[in-house]
Amino acid sequence: MAENTKNEKILVDIQHERLSFFTPAGEVKALNDVSFKMKEGEVLGIVGESGSGKSVTAYSLMGLTAYPGRLIGGTIDFNGHRINDMTEAEFREIRGNEVSIIFQDPMTSLNPVYTVGNQIEEVIKLHTDKNKEEARARAIELLTLVGINEPEKRLKQYPHELSGGMRQRVMIAIALACEPKLLIADEPTTALDVTIQAQILELMMELREKLGMAIIMITHDLGIVASMCEKIAVMYAGRIVEYGTTDDIFYNPKHEYTKGLIKSIPRLDAKDHERLVPIEGTPVDMLNPPAGCPFAPRCDSCMKICLREMPPVTYFNDVHYTQCWLNQKAEAEAAAKAGKEEADE
């Protein structure tokens, strides 16, 4: 699996990012003070439930925030660019070149009326000064790289003639055409069967070995992050509530949501039937998030202070941090005491 990368250069540096969607129903604070860094060649997993902000975080990095969304605070630095200040024309320069993305459903991102060859060659010509023949040669090279047999024949086919797994390979080929520094994969295997998923994940890790790009893997599948990521960001209601190495998150989780998530999934190797421990309650209504800790309404350990104030960041080491009052020992104890006094009155 992915070992520590030797390369220590920072590729992504997001600080205090705030991003809101100004919808007719009100402001949806999709990202609320999101900060993290990624080194070159690193594999980061982002997990969290639907609507927690995984995709929005990743897309903002490429200037792909959809209307009516707006970056309203913080800074985003990527590969030497200050993303906040970039124009659409400048984004077009880096997209597909320095950073690429693959989506859950490759059918929506491939154009049904052009052949696979057309689409790959188009991307190559956009970002290089290769001529038609050179672009075609490169396309064949790329299809071979992603494990597609008979690439010459495939180039002439249309997306609907390919299986789901094959289409995802084509998407990966397009994404890697210019050997980007960062590949964002947004649930790339959710629509695929497990045996095909295994093929695609293996391919991604192989390519990362070969090309050395960093990967942001967005998924709801804890199995996927456990097997392929070095770092994990756990998101809840537009915040990174816990961040750490894969081992930190799985073997030493500090946030109550992370703990709940790990406990709530069935294990294939369990011998006896153990009842699952679900996270009770329902996901946050992002239009009306609770005051204080957003997880409070579902948290078994919720204290009075949790309902009032957002917990500050607690660092356990250089990497591992969380935002949960239980880890603010002094504060938590004081709060518990105050709560007790109030209760005694």
């Binding site: 699996m1 299986s163 797994g165 094959m166 497990v194 045996t195 095909i196 998923q197 295994a198 093929q199 994940l201 293996e202 599948d221 804890l222 199995g223 996927i224 456990a226 097997s227 894969t246 081992d247 799985f250 073997y251 790990i262 999934i265 294990r267 294939l268 190797d269």
Partner: peptide, 23 residues
């Protein structure tokens, strides 16, 4: 069975997947 990603990093690093060819 082998294709299922295991939500346990140490086990996941040890386990070997039997990757099926094709669709």
């Amino acid at each position: 069975v082998s294709a299922i990603p295991i939500a346990d990093p140490v086990q996941a690093r040890k386990s070997k997947r039997i990757i099926l060819e094709g669709d």
